[in-house]
Amino acid sequence: MNAKNVTAAKPKVGGAIWCAPLGTALPTDAKSDLDPEFKSLGYISKDGLTNANSPSNENTAAWGGDTVLSLMTERPDTFQCTLIEALNVEVLKTVYGADNVTGTLETGITVKASADDLPFYAYVVEMVLKNNVKKRVVIPCGTVTSVGDITYADGTAVGYQTTITAIADTDGKTHYEYMQSAGK
Rank of each mutant, 00 (worst) to 15 (best):
G42M: 02
C81L: 06
G172F: 09
G103D: 09
S70H: 00
G65W: 04
K134H: 14
S56L: 01
I139P: 04
T110S: 08
A61R: 11
D149R: 11
T73F: 00
G183I: 07
T174Y: 00
Y176Q: 09
K93T: 04
T82S: 12
T170Q: 09
K112A: 06
K130N: 15
P55D: 06
V101A: 01
P27F: 07
T28H: 03
G172D: 04
P36R: 08
G14M: 13
A16K: 06
V133H: 09
S54V: 05
E85A: 01
S45Y: 01
D77A: 07
R75Q: 00
A122D: 14
T7A: 05
S45G: 12
I150V: 15
T50Q: 11
A16G: 13
M179F: 05
W18S: 12
V101N: 00
T28G: 10
T163V: 14
C141I: 08
I17P: 02
V13F: 06
Y43V: 07
A168I: 07
Y152G: 03
G97T: 09
A166S: 13
V147D: 03
V137G: 01
N59S: 01
W63K: 08
N2E: 04
T110M: 02
T174F: 00
D169T: 05
G159H: 13
E177D: 08
N100M: 06
P21I: 14
V138F: 11
D66L: 01
G103Y: 03
I164C: 06
G15D: 13
A16Y: 05
D66C: 00
G14F: 14
T102S: 14
C19P: 00
V125I: 15
K10G: 11
E74K: 07
T156G: 11
E126T: 15
E37A: 15
G64K: 00
T163G: 02
S181V: 12
N51Q: 10
N51F: 05
W18G: 09
K31N: 14
I167V: 12
P140L: 09
Y96H: 13
E90A: 02
P21G: 15
N131E: 15
Y121I: 14
Y160N: 08
K12W: 09
T94H: 02
V133G: 09
E106P: 12
D169S: 13
A52H: 01
G23W: 01
G65R: 03
P27M: 02
T151R: 06
V147K: 06
G148P: 04
A113D: 10
I84V: 09
A3N: 04
D29I: 10
T67L: 02
A166V: 12
I150C: 00
V68S: 01
L87Q: 12
G183D: 14
G142K: 05
Q80H: 00
